[in-house]
Amino acid sequence: MQSKFSNGTARITRLGRRGCDLLEALGRAGIFLFQSAIGVPSREGWRLWLQQMHFVGVLSLAIVLVSGLFIGMVLALQGYTILVDFGAEQALGQMVALSLLRELAPVVAALLFAGRAGSALTAEIGLMKATEQLTSMEMIGVDPLRRVVAPRLWAGFVSLPLLTVGFSVVGIWGGYLVGVEWLGVFEGSYWSNMQANVAFINDVGNGMIKSAVFALVVTWIAVFQGYDLVPTSEGISRATTRTVVYSSLAVLGLDFMLTAVMFGGL
């Protein structure tokens, strides 16, 4: 009885400690975000930001666009086989566009971004920490939060929404290739149904809001995991994994909540 009781308290103690650790980490991450993202960039800051836009954004372009193309093509193919049973294949354009703009482009682009750019950010900053580059920068009198972290954060915030736009555009084009060029849906109805049924604010706008939220969360997680990791090779590998896992879960969870708020009333 005695041991069962002490086992129970030990478990509760552990749970409590985990809770405290979690809260503390959240607090650290919040202060970290505030200290690095707030502030006016210098001319050098703009240059560093542009450099990071290349690494984080431009280099993710290929994987995002190719995935967008395939997803658009698959959507059209799947959509067509269902719609054609009801004789409603002329609604294909609307279906492809709405699925992409509202859901798939923001979510899939964010997941790909976490895997391609987020993990790289974590590993890069983590290695800089492990080799004392961040410490030596501090001792030179340069704040690594402003010099290393801020350009990467802002590059992530800006590039993911842009990548999402690219994803949607290429996806809609992929849907056109399969639906119109291959399966023979009338081109006029593909485009005009899309034009008539996609609302700029409700569909495009909400999709972009989702994407902006995902950009914030994924980049924040990636950069913080790199900055906060245990500076060993094992620590870097764990933090990189954590970045991908946490970002993916956060994106999918937030997507549900945002969808419920944005489209739940319809």
């Binding site: 080799t131 004392e132 580059q133 410490t135 030596s136 009198g141 704040d143």
Partner: peptide, 29 residues
């Protein structure tokens, strides 16, 4: 950070910036 500008520190590992060459590392400060 202002006080640190008046200090130099030599790290055991060197802690050079790996994305810059030797010249740019010394030019950094």
């Amino acid at each position: 950070f202002a006080l640190r500008k008046r200090m130099g520190m030599l790290f055991q590992s060197g802690a050079l910036f790996s994305d810059l060459d030797v010249f740019e590392n010394v030019a950094f400060p």
